[in-house]
Each structure stands twice: as C-alpha cells, then as structure tokens.
Amino acid sequence: MSIATIFEIVLAAVVLGLGIWTIVVRETYSATVGFVAYGLLVALIWVRLDAIDVALTEAAIGGGLGGVLLLGAAAQLRDSEPAVTDAAGNAVRVCAAILSALTAATLAGAVLVLPDPAPTLAPAAVSNAWATSLANPVTNVLMAFRAMDTMLEKVVLLLAIIGVWSLAPDSAWGGHPGPRHQADPHGVLVFLARLLPPIGIVVGIYVLWTGANHPGGAFQGGAILAAMWLLAIMAGLADTPPVSSRRLRLILVAGPGLFLVVGIAGLLFGSAFLSYPPAQAKPLILAIEVAMILTIAATLGLLLAGAPERRTGQ
C-alpha cells in the first residue's frame, strides 16, 4: 500500500468520523459544528479527486454558507430541544441501521463493478471547447453544453427565495429579512467586518474571472461575495434590503434573466436556443456570469437571512 493510499484512507476516515459525529451526537448544536467541519474537509477529497471546481463549490457553499445556515437555525432552535421526546426506539434504530447499511453496501457494490475503462465525456468536452474559447471545460459544460440545467438551476434559486419569503408573516411583507444586527462599533467583529469584505470582493471577482480558463466560476465567486455581505450585515455595518425593493428584485433575476435573453437571441438570430455565435461566445458567457454572480451573491445572502421579519425602521 503506497503512502498516497494510506493518506487517502486517513482522509476518508477523518471525514467519515465527522459524519458519524454529526449523526449520532445528542446536541443539535454540536452536530451542526461537526457538519461544518465535515463540509470544509470534504473539499480536501474533491481536491484529491482532481475536481477543483467542485472543491471550491463545496468549500464555499457546502461547508461555509450551508454550515452557517444550519448553525443559525440550531442557535435559534436551542430552546426547543428538551421538548423533543419522540426519539426513535431501539427497534427502529436497529432496523434503520440495517436498511441503511444494506443500501450503502449495494451502492458500494454498484460503484465497484462499474466498467473499466470508464466511459467519459472529457475528450468531447475538451475538443468542443473551440465553440466558446474558454479553457475551463467545467465552465463550458455549465455555460454551453448544459446551459439549460444551469439556467433552470438559477430559477430554482429564485424559487427558493420566493419560498422562503412566502413564509413571512403577512404584516412583515415587503420588509427586511432577518433581524437587524447591532454591534459594538469598537469591537473586534466590526473591525474584521471593515477589513475583510474588500479583500473578499477582490477574491470573489478573481474566482469568477479565472473561472473562464481555470477552476472557478460564478457560483464560487458569488458564495464568497455573499459571505462578505453577510459579514457586514452581522456586524451591523449594513442591513438587508427590504424585499419590496425593485432594485433588489432586478438583481435577483439578473442572472437567469440575462441567460434567458441571450438564449432567446440565439433562438431568433443564431443557430439555436442557448447557442452562442463562436466569435461572441466568450463575452456573452462572461456577461451572463457577471449577472449571475450578482444574482448568486444576493440570493445566497438572502437565503441565509431568512424570511422578511420587520418593516423599515423597526
């Protein structure tokens, strides 16, 4: 067994250990902490699997923002914990364990017997990269070959926002999502919230820009920007915009909207819906990505902020 394999086993063991902790620990808060750690460490596996684009996404969305989302809920729900008494009985646990283990084993078996050499679209993706003149095949797949999925997924994000907003009390409709944070203006939190966001903005835009040719892209960049925005909000330096704001809504649909417009332009003037004329492919895709990063940053931020809770001035 080579050192590399041993390392991989250690990595898998650490990640799985955190997974087990997340599932079995009694306190929800501890489970959440475990899950955030899990999410950030899974990024290591993705690097090891040579999927840097996914590693970035997993670190940013899966671990970072997702973890914070869960954490906020865990903190708010802490008081509800003792009320829950309907824990599963031992028989249920045993049955569930057996069934889950069987499912996992079947899955593992199915993965192990997959054909070798494995089928792949990597050569096709690489050899068709001329159509967009972008060197990152993952971005090509997302923005050109499977652009429909990406566009629909942006609509999913929008629907998630609508779903979250639809849970607001009627009286708070049109107001600001989440509580208004206030912080000691001389505190360390505010200090960091003043220093970090500009750096994060540069990094976020860099991740977007580099996504054309290297791992990166709008999702990952957007997640970083959202984190920075939320940092400023948590430190009380900014407030969430009211959901009735027209400008906010424009930003929230900018990504899918521009995607749709470009797609329809392709249908009317080009060869097909969501096709790009090769000469303008790169600028068009970049324009869509710029709109998308704004949309993603705003959407992720607002998803973390939650439903509208208060009117302006409250």
Binding site: L152, L158, R246, L250, L260, G263, F273
Partner: peptide, 21 residues
Amino acid sequence: FLLVLSIVVPIAGVLLAFVLG
C-alpha cells in the same frame, strides 16, 4: 422551437412577475 418556447414562456413569466411585483 415550440418545445423551447413551452418551457421558456412560463419561466419568463416567473422572472417578469417577480420583478414587477
């Protein structure tokens, strides 16, 4: 192209309705 339209038209409606409110 009708197939594209049948997906795009409702989705465009979603975006439009969201913005106009």
